[in-house]
Design a protein around this nucleic acid. Structure first.
Lengths: 217, 217
DNA sequence: GTCTATAGATGGATAGAC
DNA sequence: GTCTATCCATCTATAGAC
């Protein structure tokens, strides 16, 4: 690029560099894992300077954490919005299935192959196991977005002991976290292709059938 | 150590070194992750020579794969034995709950805090997300141990379409794979301690309640 | 702000003496 | 077989010129 003349152009170029790093890093991390992708890989693929990661983000770990915070915030906003809509539809007492749908649908729709968000979905899933200590701390301790779901489920099943609801929410989340490429590959290998549909909505319904029944047990 | 005199003593010492490396590597990998643990960390903690890993296993990745093969083989043997016993109890047509118990119980019991196998359980769980390409290939393609479970479940629910059974098996496995320290921590944080029981058998029953209902939907 | 060059640290693997 | 010393690749982070 040629040298920018005005300060507005500098700001634009700076923002463009930062955005390119963010997008490229997210993609490479999602595809190849955090440990396997170096700062050099990112800057080379993004066509920016090697030093720009440290300049804009301080460190590789900070860059990771930055992407993580953005994506989880977006995902949890979508979930909260869907839960809110379910509340509106049912005078503040939605049934189990609609609560679970608000929990399942956003990450599932993100993960759909044709969705550009699929990269972000894989990034978030990887964060759960490959994240930096800072990210793991955030995952383990920041449960604010889950409180509303736990409360809604408790209200929908007042006959269940609270800890039963918490455990079942944990099981339901396990179902979501298992939606990784490698697990799908294994499932398709096991079923000899019978599970190769790729239709996100029918997968969502299958998951809801299973989890809703689990909650009504 | 003093120099061994006879060839028997050499064999013993060699076996002892190899075993020490295996045990120490498994423990460190399980606790800190594959990428964070170096060959130097392992040999230092095991009190053996730096070169012994390459001498006995060829490479770090090979050492990882060796541990992985041993542990998954052991785990799947336990699962197969429990499924076999369930078959015997029910003339070859065990109910869903007992099939799922054979799938859930071994990894759950391994993971119990007081069980020395807890290290191995964490190692296996880490393998699913942090493994080498070789390990991922094995996980995705070696489904032989799951075929019997899929067949048993299909026989127990002949009214369900086969692909439905496969998907639900996938969901049930997701529940198992979610049993990681970080997820438990998060659950305990969310429930404000209400889920802190540590009783493996009651957790097993909770999981079976949920998954059995999911299969009967 | 960008970029080159390089510091500084770490890790996997191996040669060669014993 | 064991062990020390070392090679060599790789990575993050930064100093300093522009």
């Amino acid at each position: 690029m040629t040298e920018p003349a005005t300060s507005d152009e500098i700001r634009e170029e700076e923002a463009a560099t930062k955005a390119a790093v963010l997008a490229t890093a997210e993609r490479l991390f999602a595809l190849h894992g955090f440990g396997s992708v170096s700062v050099r890989d990112i800057t080379a693929a993004a066509g920016v300077n090697l030093a720009s990661v440290n300049y804009h983000f301080g460190s590789k770990d900070n860059l990771l954490f930055e992407i993580f915070k953005r994506r989880t915030a977006e995902l949890n906003r979508e979930r909260a919005r869907m839960l809110h809509e379910a509340n509106d539809r049912h005078a503040g007492r939605p049934p189990v299935r609609e609560i679970l749908e608000a929990l399942f649908a956003p990450p599932l729709r993100w993960g759909a192959p044709e969705n550009p968000r699929a990269i972000s979905a894989q990034f978030i899933i990887r964060s759960r196991s490959e994240g930096t200590p800072e990210m793991r701390e955030a995952i383990a301790h920041d449960v604010s977005h889950l409180i509303r779901f736990a409360d809604a489920l408790t209200a929908a099943r007042p006959d269940l002991a609270p800890e039963v609801v918490y455990w079942r929410l944990h099981f339901a989340l396990g179902m979501v976290h298992n939606n990784r490429f490698i697990e799908f590959d294994r499932l398709h290998m096991l079923s000899d292709g019978a599970t190769r549909e790729g239709d996100v909505d029918s997968l969502l319904q299958r998951m809801l059938d299973f989890a809703e029944a689990g909650f009504l047990a």
